Amino acid sequence: MPWIDACATEDIDAEDLIRWDHGGQTFAIYHSPEGEFFATAGLCTHEQVHLCDGLVMGHLIECPKHNGQFDYRTGEAKRAPVCVNLRTFPVRVEGGRVLVEVA
C-alpha cells in the first residue's frame, strides 16, 4: 500500500485536526497531546458530517452535528448517537511530513 504525503507536522496544532482529501475520500488527521499523529475517515459514521469542524478533546473527536464522540486513536465510537466505529489508517512521520497509508 502506498504511503501518501498528507501535510506537514506543523500544519496541525496539538489537540487539533485538519481535513485531508485524497483519491475521492475525505480523511481527518489528528495531532495528539503527546505529539503523535493519527488518521481516520473524515466523515462521522452517524450522518456523514465532516469531522474537521468538530472539537478535539484529549484523544476524542466530537462530531459537530450531534456531539457523538470517537477515540481517534482506535476509531472506537464512545458516545451516542454514534455506534459505528470510524475507520483508521496507519500514519508515520518522516522529515517533518505526515504520511498516511491509504488502501
Rank of each mutant, 00 (worst) to 15 (best):
E47P: 00
R92Q: 05
A6R: 08
I12C: 02
M1P: 13
S32T: 05
A80W: 14
G58A: 07
A8N: 13
R73W: 02
F37W: 01
G42Q: 05
A77K: 07
A14Y: 01
G35L: 08
C52K: 07
G75R: 05
V56G: 05
E101G: 03
V93K: 06
P90Q: 11
D53E: 11
I61Q: 11
G54P: 09
F38L: 04
W3Q: 08
G58Y: 07
P33R: 04
V98M: 03
E10T: 00
T74M: 13
R79Q: 11
G35I: 00
G58E: 09
H66S: 03
C83T: 12
F38C: 12
P33E: 00
T40I: 00
T45N: 07
P33T: 04
T88K: 06
I4Y: 15
F27D: 05
H59P: 13
T9W: 10
T40N: 12
P2Y: 13
N67K: 12
H22A: 06
R73G: 05
D5A: 13
D71N: 15
E101K: 11
D5Q: 11
I18S: 03
A77D: 09
D16S: 09
C7K: 06
D71W: 06
Q69P: 13
T26C: 13
E101M: 07
F70K: 06
H46W: 15
V82L: 04
A41L: 06
E10W: 01
E101S: 10
G24Y: 05
A28L: 03
P81K: 10
T45K: 09
A39M: 01
H59N: 15
I29A: 04
D16P: 02
T26A: 14
E62Q: 11
A14D: 00
Q25K: 14
